[in-house]
Write a protein that binds this DNA or RNA. Structure first.
Length: 1018
RNA sequence: GCCCCGGUGGUGGAAUUGGUAGACACGCAGGACUUAAAAUCCUGUGACCCGCAACGGUCGUAACGGUUCAACUCCGUUCCGGGGCACCA
C-alpha cells in the first residue's frame, strides 16, 4: 500500500473537525498551557511560506503539551483593521469590510491545509463590532483612569477628583512637563501649576476637564504630524523621503493636530523593571530597554551671561526674564569640562537669545532644519550647527561658554539642550573640532587630544572640587552641590514618549467620545459598540481630519427633533495596535457579552505561556500590550500584570529572487537607439522584440571579460537586429534587471516556454542571448514579497507533498529563530523520510497490518530486542529535549535517524513503532494518526500517552574514546566507562599509535575527561 | 553615526556546559533493479599531499592575534552580510 497522503490528510482533517478534536474547555482538572501566535493581518496576497513558520512551531509545541497532559489553549484570529484595506478601497471602491472578509476566507483555507490544531470556535477579528466593542470599552477605562505616582498604579479618575476637592493637586502634580491642552497652558502660568481645593472648586467645567485631561491614561493633546497638503492627508514617517511624499513627491510639512495619546510614559519604570520576570531573549529585552531608555543624571541650570543689550531692550526684557537654560546630562561629573552648550534648533529660547549679528545665520539654519525629517536628522553624519552669539555661565566654574544650535540635539528629549563636553563625549568632540571651539581637558594624560574619553574608570583632573575623584563619586558630589545651591537637581529621564493613539483614517475603531465646547464626553457603556458608519468616499476630511469627518449625519448629533446641539463625534479612529493590545485576553472568553473576559476565566488561563512571533513587533505591539495588561491589572480586571511569559522570535524567511536582464537601448553620444522601437531588421519595423541576456554573459560584460562590442554582436545575433555603433568607442548599452517569478525557474535555469507565457504572454516574442543553450538567472536574497515575484505558496507544496511533509520541511530548514532564505529543493528528503516511515508498516509484500488484522502476531508481538529499545529510547530523549528547547530542526533529523536505524534493524514491532508515532504526532499529525489507528488503537493519537524515557535501555558500559596527542585526535580506543585514571593511562600508553607519536618520550600528563575524551600531553 | 543578530563543505544546517568539526538532509558522481523511465536501494562526497593500496599526513568553522592540555564555542582587533533606530547627551 502506498503512502497516499492526500487521502489520509483529507480524511483525518475532516474527522478531527467533526469530532471537535481541537475544542478547548475553560474548565479542566489538567494544568493549563496557553500557546499563542502573533495574529496575522489578512493581506490580499494570502499566505506565503514565510508565514506558517511560527505557526507550525507553535502548533507542534501545543500538540506536544497536550500529549504531556496539559489543557492547551491554542487560538487564532485576525488583526483585521489596517491601512492596506483602506487603500484598496480608495483604489477599487470595494468596502474594506468586504475585501477583509474575502482575504480572511483565503487565509483560513490556506491555514486549514496545513493541519493546525486551532480551536476555531474562539476565532476573533479586531474589525468585528462584537470585538471592538471591548476595545472601545477598555479605551474608556483608560480615559477614566490616571496614574497615581504615589501608589505607582492606575486608579479611577473619580478618586483624583476627590483628591482635588480636598487638597488640590499639591501632592499630585501634572505629570507631563509640557501642557498638551493649549487653552490651559495659556490660562495657567508657568510649568507646574499647583492649585488648592478652593481653586479647584472655583474652576469652570472646561478648566476642570482640561486639567483632568492632563492626568488621564488616554488623553487628548496636540502633536506634530507629517502633513501633505497636495494629498490632503497625514503621512507616516517612512512615507516621507527627503521632505517630500513618497507617492507623488509632494512637499510635506509638520502640522499640529489634536491627537489622542496613551500615557505609557507613566509605566516606563514598571515596563523596565518587569522585564526581569520574563523569559524573553536578551536581544528582545535589550531592544525594549533601549526604547524605554531610562537614564539617570542631573538637570542643571546655566544662567545666561548678560544677554545682548540691544536685544533685551528691543524685547523689553529685564535680567529676571532670562532665567537660564536647563540642560539634562547623564555625566554631571564632567561639568568642569563644558566648553559650549547646544540647543535644539526648535528650542523656545533660540529666538530670544540670538544676537542681531547672528540672527540671519540662525534663522537660515533653523529653517533648513525644519525642512528635514526626523529620519534624516537621525541618519546624518555630517556635522552642522550655528552659533547664536549668546553665552551661558557654568554654575560651578563660573566660566562663560558659547551657546550653539545643532540638529543633533532633539527638542523632544530631556530639556532640548545639552552641555557639551568635548573631552568626554565623542560627538561633542567632533563638533568642537569641526567649529574650532577650544577643548578643556579634564582627564589629564589620559586625554591625548585626538578622541574623547568615554571610559568611566578614569580620574578627573582640572575639575575644581571634584579633581581627583572617580566618575561615580564626582557625579554624586556635583548633584549634591547643585541641589544645595539651587542650580539643578537629580533627574531620571526616559527616551520613551507617550504613544500617539489616533489616526486620521476610516478603517479602524471609532472613539466612543463626543465633543462639546472643547470638552470630551465619553459614551455610556450601554451605547457600545459605536459602530463604524458606512461611507462612500474614503477621502480625507477637512483640515487633516479623517474620512469620518465627511459624514455629517454621523458626526453631528442633533436632538430628537433634529435641532443642532453642538455635539460632535470624535472623527479620529484608533491605530492598528489598539485591537492587538489585548486580543490574547479575548481568546480566553471570546463569546462573553457581559465583559471583555470573565475574571474567573482569565484567572484560569492566566498569562500566555508561549508567544511566538517576529522581532518587528519588538517595541510596538509588545510594549503596548504590556502597558494595557498593567493598566487592566491595576484596575482589577485581570490578575496578572505581564501578558507574555515566554517569547520566541521566529526568523524571517527570506525570498530567493531570480532576475533576467533585458536589453533596453544603445546610445551613441546624444542619440539613443531604443530596443523597443525600430532598428530591427525583421520583416516588420514596427514590431519589437524584448531581448534578454543570460546571467553569466551579463556578468562577464560587467567584469569587462567581454567587450561592449562583443555583447552588441551577441545581441544582434540573438535578436536578429542591426544595432551598429557609429563610433566603436563611444556607445553605451543599457540593460535592465527584472525580477522574474521564481516559480518558472528551475534552480537558476529559466523555463523559457513558461517565461513566454508569464504575465499574460507579455514576453511571448522574447529572444535570448543564451549560454550553452540555457538561460541562467541572476539571484539575490531579499524580503519575500509579491512585488519581487519570489513568493512560494504553501498550497502548492501541500498539494504536491502533503501537509505533514510541508510542516516537517519548514522545521527542518533550520532553527526557528534564525532568518534564512527559502529553497524548495530539500523538501524531497523530508518526503522520502515519511515514505520510509510508512514502509516500516508496509513492506514490499503489501500491508503488514490492516484494520482487520491489526497486528501480525508472529512479528508484532515479538519481544523487542535491546537494540530496538535503545533506538526508541534514545529517540524519546532526543525528541523531548529538542522539542522543549524549540530545536525543531534537530528533532526532525532525530526522527530520520530513528527511522533509518529501525529500517536497518528490520523492526516492525508494534510496541516500538507505536511509541515512535506518538513522538511524531506533533510534527506530522496526519500520518501518525493514520498509522496509529492501523495498529488497532481505538483512541486518537492526539491524546495518546507520551512515551516515557527509561535510562536503562540506553546505558552503555564502554565508550570509544578519541585519543588526542597534544590536542590533535590521533586514534580511538574503546574503554570501560568506569575506568579509573590509572587504568586509562595504562591502556593509552600501551597503544601503538600513541607510542608512535610519543616517539620514545614520556608524556607530561594524560588528561582524561570521563565520557568525553583523552588527551596525551607531551 | 548608534544598537542587535549572524558568517561552518557546492547548498540548508549539526556540534546543548570549551572536549572526535561537518550529524541529518539537498545536490553531485558511480553502481543495483528496469527494455526504458519514475520510484527504491547501495557506495562515495571539506580541501590538499603521499602512495598500488590499507593506512597515513597537512590545512580547515570570515581574517588576524590571545587564553587553554584542548577553541566553531571564551577574550581582543578587523572585514563582510542581514535587521532595527527616536544622533538620547
Amino acid at each position: 500500500m502506498e503512502y497516499n497522503f492526500r487521502e489520509i490528510e483529507k480524511r483525518w482533517q475532516q474527522q478531527w473537525k467533526e469530532t471537535g478534536a481541537y475544542k478547548v474547555s475553560n474548565s479542566s482538572s489538567k494544568p493549563k498551557y496557553y500557546v499563542l501566535d502573533m495574529f496575522p493581518y489578512p493581506s490580499g496576497a494570502g499566505l506565503h511560506v514565510g508565514h506558517p513558520l511560527g505557526y507550525i512551531a507553535s502548533d507542534i509545541f501545543a500538540r506536544y503539551k497536550r500529549l504531556k497532559g496539559f489543557n492547551v489553549l491554542h487560538p487564532m484570529g485576525y488583526d483585521a483593521f489596517g491601512l492596506p484595506a483602506e487603500q484598496y478601497a480608495i483604489d477599487h471602491g470595494i468596502h474594506p469590510a468586504v475585501s477583509t472578509e474575502k482575504n480572511i476566507n483565503t487565509f483560513r483555507k490556506q491555514l486549514d491545509n496545513i493541519g493546525f490544531c486551532y480551536d476555531w470556535d474562539r476565532e476573533i477579528r479586531t474589525s468585528d463590532p462584537e470585538y471592538y466593542k471591548w476595545t472601545q470599552w477598555i479605551f474608556l477605562r483608560l480615559f477614566k483612569s490616571w496614574f497615581n505616582r504615589k501608589t505607582k498604579k492606575a486608579e479611577s479618575i473619580d478618586e483624583l477628583i476627590k483628591i482635588f476637592e480636598t487638597e488640590g493637586n499639591i501632592n499630585h502634580e501634572i505629570p507631563n512637563s509640557r501642557f498638551q491642552i493649549s487653552n490651559l497652558s495659556a490660562a495657567a502660568d508657568l510649568k507646574s501649576p499647583v492649585f488648592s481645593a478652593a481653586n479647584w472648586a472655583s474652576f469652570d467645567e472646561f478648566t476642570q476637564q482640561s486639567i483632568l485631561m492632563e492626568y488621564r491614561l488616554a488623553y487628548c493633546g496636540y502633536g506634530e504630524v507629517n502633513w501633505c497638503e497636495a494629498l490632503g492627508t497625514v503621512l507616516a514617517n517612512d512615507e516621507v523621503i527627503n521632505g517630500v511624499s513618497e507617492r507623488g513627491g509632494h512637499p510635506v510639512v509638520k502640522k499640529k493636530l489634536r491627537q489622542w495619546y496613551l500615557r505609557i510614559t507613566e509605566y516606563a519604570d514598571r515596563l523596565q523593571n518587569d522585564l526581569d520576570t520574563l523569559e524573553w531573549s536578551d536581544a528582545m529585552k535589550e531592544m525594549q530597554t533601549n526604547w524605554i531608555g531610562r537614564s539617570s543624571g542631573a538637570e542643571i541650570v546655566f544662567k545666561l551671561a548678560s544677554p545682548p543689550a540691544p536685544l533685551r531692550e528691543e524685547k523689553g526684557l529685564g535680567d529676571e526674564a532670562t532665567p537660564g537654560v536647563r540642560v539634562y546630562t547623564t555625566r554631571p561629573d564632567t561639568i568642569f569640562g563644558v566648553d559650549f552648550m547646544v540647543l535644539a534648533p526648535e528650542h523656545e529660547l533660540v529666538e530670544q537669545i540670538t544676537t542681531p549679528e547672528q540672527k540671519a545665520t540662525v534663522d537660515e539654519y533653523v529653517a533648513w532644519v525644519k525642512s528635514r525629517s526626523e529620519r534624516e536628522r537621525m541618519a546624518e553624519k555630517k556635522i552642522s550647527g550655528c552659533f547664536t552669539g549668546a553665552y551661558a555661565i557654568n554654575p560651578l566654574s563660573g566660566k562663560e561658554i558659547p551657546i550653539w544650535i545643532s540638529e543633533y540635539v532633539l527638542a523632544g528629549y530631556g530639556t532640548g539642550a545639552i552641555m557639551a563636553v568635548p573631552s568626554g563625549d565623542e560627538r561633542d568632540h567632533k563638533f568642537a573640532q569641526y567649529f574650532g571651539i577650544p577643548i578643556t581637558n579634564i582627564f589629564g594624560d589620559v586625554y591625548k587630544g585626538d578622541e574623547a574619553i568615554a571610559d568611566k574608570n578614569v580620574t578627573l583632573y582640572n575639575s575644581g572640587f571634584i579633581t581627583g575623584l572617580k566618575v561615580k563619586d564626582a557625579a554624586e558630589e556635583v548633584i549634591e552641590w547643585l541641589e544645595d545651591n539651587g542650580n539643578g537637581e537629580r533627574k531620571i529621564n526616559y527616551k520613551m514618549r507617550d504613544a500617539a493613539f489616533s489616526r486620521q483614517r476610516y478603517w479602524g475603531e471609532p472613539f466612543p467620545i463626543i465633543w462639546k465646547d472643547g470638552i470630551a464626553y465619553p459614551l455610556k457603556e450601554s451605547e457600545l459598540p459605536l459602530e463604524l458608519p458606512h461611507v462612500d468616499s474614503y477621502k480625507p476630511g477637512p483640515e487633516g481630519e479623517g474620512p469620518l469627518a465627511n459624514i455629517s449625519s454621523w458626526v453631528d448629533i442633533p436632538t430628537l427633533d433634529g435641532d443642532p446641539t453642538g455635539l460632535r463625534r470624535e472623527t479620529n479612529t484608533m491605530p492598528g495596535y489598539a485591537g492587538s493590545s489585548w486580543y490574547f485576553l479575548r481568546y480566553m472568553d471570546p463569546h462573553n457579552k457581559e465583559i471583555f473576559c470573565d475574571r474567573e476565566v482569565s484567572d484560569y488561563w492566566n498569562q500566555v505561556d508561549l508567544y511566538i512571533g517576529g522581532t518587528e513587533h519588538a517595541v510596538g505591539h509588545l510594549l503596548y500590550s504590556r502597558m494595557w495588561t498593567k493598566a487592566l491589572y491595576d484596575l482589577g480586571y485581570i490578575g496578572f500584570n505581564e501578558p507574555f511569559k515566554k517569547l520566541v522570535n521566529q526568523g524571517m524567511i527570506q525570498g530567493s529572487s531570480r532576475f533576467v536582464y533585458r536589453f533596453t537601448s544603445v546610445s551613441f553620444g546624444n542619440s539613443i537607439q531604443d530596443a523597443g522601437k525600430g532598428f530591427i531588421s525583421d520583416s516588420n519595423e514596427e514590431e519589437s522584440y524584448p531581448i534578454f541576456i543570460s546571467y553569466s554573459i551579463y556578468q562577464k560584460y560587467l567584469d569587462k571579460e567581454i567587450s561592449k562590442r562583443d555583447l552588441l554582436n551577441l545581441i544582434n545575433e540573438a535578436g536578429n537586429t542591426t544595432f551598429i555603433p557609429v563610433d566603436e568607442n563611444d556607445f553605451e548599452i543599457a540593460l535592465l534587471k527584472i525580477h522574474v517569478d521564481v516559480n518558472i525557474v528551475d534552480g537558476i535555469e529559466l523555463d523559457i516556454e513558461a517565461f513566454k507565457r508569464w504575465r499574460n504572454y507579455e514576453y511571448s516574442n522574447a529572444r535570448f542571448v543564451l549560454e550553452n543553450g540555457k538561460y541562467i538567472c541572476g539571484t539575490e536574497i531579499e524580503k519575500m514579497s509579491k512585488s519581487k515575484f519570489n513568493t512560494v505558496n504553501p498550497d502548492d507544496l501541500v498539494n504536491k507533498y502533503g501537509a505533514d511533509t510541508f510542516r516537517m520541511y519548514e522545521m527542518f530548514l533550520g532553527p526557528v529563530e534564525q532568518s534564512k532564505p527559502w529553497d524548495t529543493k530539500g523538501i524531497e528528503g523530508v518526503h522520502r523520510f515519511l515514505k520510509k516511515l510508512w514502509r516500516l508498516f508496509y513492506d514490499e509484500a503489501g500491508p503488514t497490518w490492516t484494520l482487520a488484522a491489526p497486528t501480525s502476531l508472529e512479528r508484532a508481538e515479538d519481544e523487542p530486542t535491546a537494540e530496538e529499545l535503545k533506538v526508541l529510547h534514545r529517540t524519546i530523549k532526543k525528541i523531548e529535549e529538542d522539542t522543549e528547547r524549540f530545536s525543531f530542526n534537530t528533532a526532525v533529523s532525530a526522527f530520520m535517524i530513528a527511522v533509518n536505524e529501525l529500517t536497518e534493524l528490520k523492526c516492525n514491532k508494534k510496541s516500538i513503532l507505536e511509541k515512535l508515532l506518538v513522538l511524531l504526532a506533533p510534527y506530522a499529525p496526519h500520518i501518525s494518526e493514520e498509522l496509529w489507528r492501523q495498529l488497532g488503537n481505538t483512541g486518537s493519537v492526539l491524546d495518546a500517552a507520551y512515551p516515557v524515557f527509561e535510562e536503562k535501555y540506553v546505558t552503555e558500559s564502554s565508550k570509544s574514546y578519541p585519543i588526542a596527542v597534544n590536542g590533535k585526535t590521533r586514534t580511538e580506543i574503546t574503554i570501560a566507562l568506569d575506568a579509573t585514571q590509572q587504568q586509562v593511562e595504562e591502556i593509552v600508553m600501551a597503544d601503538a599509535v600513541v607510542q608512535k607519536w610519543l616517539g620514545g618520550k614520556a608524556p607530561k600528563k594524560i588528561i582524561y575527561v570521563k565520557n568525553r575524551m583523552i588527551n596525551v600531553v607531551i
